[in-house]
Amino acid sequence: MKQYLKEKISDNQLDLKTAIVLNKAIRTFKPYEAKAAKEHGLTPTQFSVLETLYSKGELRIQDLIEKMLATSGNMTVVIRNMVRDGWISRTCDPKDRRSFFLKLTPAGRRKIEEVLPDHIDSIVEALSILEDGEKEDLIQILKKFKNL
């Protein structure tokens, strides 16, 4: 290994270890986050669409994508399939014919209300390893990443 690379690694050990531990924690947490959706026959993206519309109400497609931090290419297919399955409806924005609003149908509302309690239980289970103060600290630490 080249000397400058050894020095760079040595000088940045704490940052590198922090990144590794953070990524391992995310990989460990992800299955808990996806567990309920999978058990109820939903993809994580479908669950996110249902949950976002449930908590935020009717949204323009672009606003939904932004709130979910999703890509528009994948969302087009997901939305089309969810409309086909009767979980969400799509209506044209009267102020902008190029825009569409999405909202839950009664079937979509029933589906998310069926899944959400199990999802909450999974999240609570995963985070049970932390005390309340540690959760508050973690929230404050992770919020700092918003500024990157």
Results as ranks from 00 to 15, higher is better:
M1W: 02
A25F: 09
L142F: 15
T71G: 14
L14N: 10
T43H: 02
E58V: 02
E58D: 09
K17R: 14
T45R: 04
E125R: 07
M82L: 09
T71D: 15
W87I: 01
D118T: 04
I141F: 14
H119I: 00
K17G: 04
R80W: 05
G133P: 03
I123C: 05
T76P: 01
I61Y: 04
K146A: 11
I112K: 00
G86M: 01
L104P: 04
F47Y: 11
E51K: 06
I141N: 10
K143L: 11
L14D: 12
M82I: 00
L142G: 09
L53D: 01
M68A: 08
L130M: 15
P31V: 03
M68I: 14
A25K: 05
P44W: 03
L116T: 02
I9N: 05
R98I: 06
A126Y: 00
S99P: 04
P44E: 08
W87T: 00
K146D: 12
K111S: 03
P106Q: 10
K103R: 14
L16P: 03
Q140N: 15
E66Y: 14
K95V: 09
I129M: 11
P94D: 09
K8V: 14
M68S: 05
G86L: 05
L22R: 13
L130D: 10
L53W: 03
A107M: 10
L116Q: 05
E39H: 09
L116C: 03
Q3C: 04
A34P: 04
F101K: 04
S99Y: 06
E131Y: 11
E58I: 04
D118Y: 01
Q3P: 01
L14R: 10
R97W: 01
I120H: 05
S122Q: 08
V78I: 13
E131C: 09
K8A: 13
E134W: 11
V49G: 02
I61M: 14
L59Q: 11
T91D: 08
Q62E: 15
A36F: 00
T76I: 11
V77Y: 13
K135H: 11
D118F: 00
I65D: 07
K56W: 07
L16D: 02
I65Q: 12
Q13M: 12
E114V: 02
T43R: 03
L116R: 08
R109G: 04
N81Y: 09
V77F: 12
L127T: 08
A70L: 05
W87N: 02
